[in-house]
Design a protein around this nucleic acid. Sequence first.
DNA 1: ATTTACAGCACCATTCTGGTCCGATATGGT
DNA 2: ACCATATCGGACCAGAATGGTGCTGTAAAT
Lengths: 165, 165
Amino acid sequence: MFRLSKTTDYGIVLMAQLASTPDRSPLNARELAASADLPAPMVSKILKALAREGLLISQRGSKGGYQLARLPEELSVSEMIRVLEGPVALTDCAIGPTLCSHESLCAVREPWQVINRVVERALADVTLADLVRQRPLRRGALAEGILQIERRPEPRPERSPTHVD
Amino acid sequence: MFRLSKTTDYGIVLMAQLASTPDRSPLNARELAASADLPAPMVSKILKALAREGLLISQRGSKGGYQLARLPEELSVSEMIRVLEGPVALTDCAIGPTLCSHESLCAVREPWQVINRVVERALADVTLADLVRQRPLRRGALAEGILQIERRPEPRPERSPTHVD
DNA sequence: ATTTACAGCACCATTCTGGTCCGATATGGT
DNA sequence: ACCATATCGGACCAGAATGGTGCTGTAAAT
């Protein structure tokens, strides 16, 4: 269905939770799970991964917990996705050459790389700080595009297909 | 890994193949599978789905096959993805309200909807005609953004994390 | 009537995902 | 020193989704 995994979804919610806490004392996994209403073992697992990858700082022992490793302004959605989900690659050939055996035949490779870069940039342009703010977007060409989209709700009408799962 | 399914990937390649054939006589599943070097039963299944959803016109019997239902300029990548993969929804709450039980707690819902719209629009702005063309992009604010991205290869340097699978 | 080729559907193996659990280790407090 | 608290690093598991196959039926052309 072209969606992020729950792991990533939860992970970003947890990061946002950490970013929106006023003080910077570490929060432990149980507290975070409770305040986000997510399954505790799952939360624990995700936090571990985020710490291992350097997006969170972990503190062991009593009074331990997790803190953001950087300022919310310096943590992009793209990076969180990459850490939890792996690299953004809509198709195999979207990253680079010689990953797909059909290269010589397939004419669609290069356009995919462009599309991929657009999506990645859209995600890189939103930071954790934007997520916990009311009006979410600020800088960059794509942010401008976003605002334009918000103004005109349906620029090119496309019928919603009668798709059944 | 945040990627499209093979079904969608193949489907778009097949659509592109049909868009790039000079004459508009129908191509059958076997021919398409051979020229794209993809497993024939899989190709057949995907073409059926595309025809059922109205993106292709099927012709039965001998000399039958598949044709594009519309001009390549009128078939967007977003639509092909939606037909083959389902609606674009990066998270559960990205579409609308009351799909997620955490709404009252979660502060991240609205930003996700915006991000989702950006991604969807990026995909809606590229048509099948663009995919089979050399210089792929034309109109719209996002297309401009894409060209800008192409000019400056790495606008905001982000370290590539030492991620292992 | 025969051949060609799509339509629909059931089926299967493998992988991925969401979720759980446990022993080890580090820290703070008593 | 000891204990409670928490993270760390695994293994582990059930169920769903994915990629891929096969078969029967039906429409069209010769």
